[in-house]
């Protein structure tokens, strides 16, 4: 019988303690962010989709070696290149020039293998996270075009 009453009392006390905690939280400042009106600043290392890095002259750093393409687990990078002859210090050299760099973001798993495998510092992560669309085509990024748009 004493167990009966002590359970009622301790149980009632636990309920009061719980309610006092939620009441305290009621008056605390809010912790959420009103998303479309306020936005989060992405961490420096945030891994978004990739972007090409340009050199001083505005051309992509990429030498079209295709390491990223091979490293990608999902096969979402496809790039093409052509070789051109350029003159460096009086000598003609053959050089590969990037002609297209397509990222199929629909299958990308944002693992970062491509950036890691790149030896020429040619790709980086974008900080973009507001990616939403109802069309698949919107996620086939032409990174070369994006680079030009960024420069213009």
């Amino acid at each position: 019988m004493s167990g009966y009453f002590s359970e009622i009392i301790s149980g009632g006390k636990s309920l009061v303690v719980g309610m006092s905690i939620t009441l305290k939280e009621f008056f605390k400042p809010k912790v959420t962010l009103q998303y479309p009106h306020q936005t989060v600043k992405m961490a420096e290392r945030f891994r978004g989709h990739i972007e090409l890095i340009e050199n001083e002259s505005g051309e992509p750093n990429c030498v079209a070696c295709g390491m990223c393409q091979r490293a990608c687990p999902s096969g979402c990078i496809s790039l093409t290149s052509k070789s051109v002859e350029i003159e460096v210090e009086g000598k003609t050299k053959k050089k590969k020039v990037l002609t297209s760099y397509d990222l199929n973001f629909t299958t990308c798993s944002l693992c970062g293998s491509c950036v890691e495998s790149c030896n020429f510092d040619a790709i980086c992560y974008s900080k973009e996270y507001n990616l939403a669309s109802t069309r698949k085509e919107d996620f086939h990024f032409d990174l070369l075009k994006r680079l030009k748009e960024r420069n213009s």
Partner: peptide, 8 residues
């Protein structure tokens, strides 16, 4: 509910 859960 929002206020108890620290959201507006």
């Amino acid at each position: 509910a929002g206020f108890f859960q620290r959201r507006p």
